[in-house]
Amino acid sequence: MRSTGNTIFLPGGTSGLGRGLAERFAARGDRVIIGGRRQELLDQIAASSDRIEAVRIDTSDAASIRDVSAEVQERFPETDALLAMAGIMRPEDVTTGGFLADAEATVTTNLLGPIRLWAAWADFLTAKEEATLITVSSGLAFTPLALTPTYDATKSGVHALSDAWRLQLAGTGVQVIELVPPAVRTDLMPGPNDANAMPLEEYLDETVRLLEEQPEAREILVQRVQRLRFSERDGDRDELMAVLAGSH
């Protein structure tokens, strides 16, 4: 991925990591088309920078993904990067069946969302000489948190998709980069005031720096996520899972 001059479609760009990355990319010289459901917030963010555009999209809805993706491709034919950011994280108590609605919503947004997005963009981006697909998994894809089993599973799925898509796309101009965040202080669980989570600005600083320093990277791993990412290799996965379970 180039360090500037990209045109990036970023669904899930109205809050948290998505908004922060959109603003960082715009500040460094990229053009960013953010997507989200809240029109007032979309308008507010777009007005903050002449390098940010906004479209309304619901990444839990297949028709919205298909239609809005086609609109962005028509309005911004120079788009050469897709960052599939949108996601939800909900606690679940699987000792009873009441968790099912949250689990289904999580799968729809976190796993079907990126799959549907790439299906809507595959023909467009593979026709480019150079393009980038950025996925977003989590440290919990590798060392799960007991409180959020379906979230963990969907992020494991995103990691597997990233690896498999990278292999299939090797003969094209599409680079696949997986962001692997730790817990970050955003509105996503555990929340903006969690002292154990990484401050948002620190995460954004380190992530953008790594993207620029490692333009051919497969995974972007900030220092705070390394233990989660490599716990199985390092032999402390069970211990770390117990620590995570006890902290919530």
Score class of each variant (00 low, 15 high):
Ala141Glu: 12
Ala127Asn: 06
Gln175Pro: 04
Ala170Phe: 10
Ser156Lys: 08
Arg56Ser: 09
Pro190His: 02
Tyr203Leu: 07
Asp238Asn: 13
Phe142Gly: 01
Ile52Phe: 04
Val174Thr: 15
Asp236Ala: 10
Thr132Asn: 13
Glu23Tyr: 04
Gly113Cys: 14
Leu147Asp: 12
Leu42Thr: 06
Ala105Gln: 13
Ala122Thr: 15
Glu92His: 09
Leu145Thr: 10
Arg38Ser: 02
Leu179Met: 03
Leu210Asp: 09
Leu200Ala: 07
Thr7Val: 14
Lys128Trp: 05
Glu213Met: 05
Leu17Pro: 07
Gly97Met: 02
Val107Leu: 14
Thr108Ile: 15
Thr4Tyr: 00
Thr7His: 08
Arg56Phe: 00
Ile134Arg: 12
Ala242Leu: 08
Asn193Cys: 01
Leu240Glu: 02
Pro144Thr: 01
Val222Phe: 00
Arg237Cys: 06
Ser69Leu: 05
Phe99Val: 07
Val94Gly: 09
Thr4Gly: 00
Ala245Thr: 12
Gln73Asn: 07
Thr7Trp: 06
Arg218Asn: 04
Lys155Pro: 07
Asp123Lys: 06
Met241Val: 13
Met85Ile: 14
Pro11Gly: 11
Ala242Gln: 15
Ala160Gly: 12
Arg116Tyr: 12
Gly173His: 08
Arg37Glu: 09
Leu21Tyr: 07
Val107Tyr: 10
Gln168Met: 14
Ala127Gln: 09
Val94Pro: 00
Leu145Met: 03
Leu210Glu: 10
Gly139Thr: 06
Leu210Ala: 08
Glu130Thr: 15
Gly12Asn: 05
Thr108Cys: 06
Arg2Lys: 15
Thr59Cys: 09
Leu161Pro: 04
Phe9Gln: 07
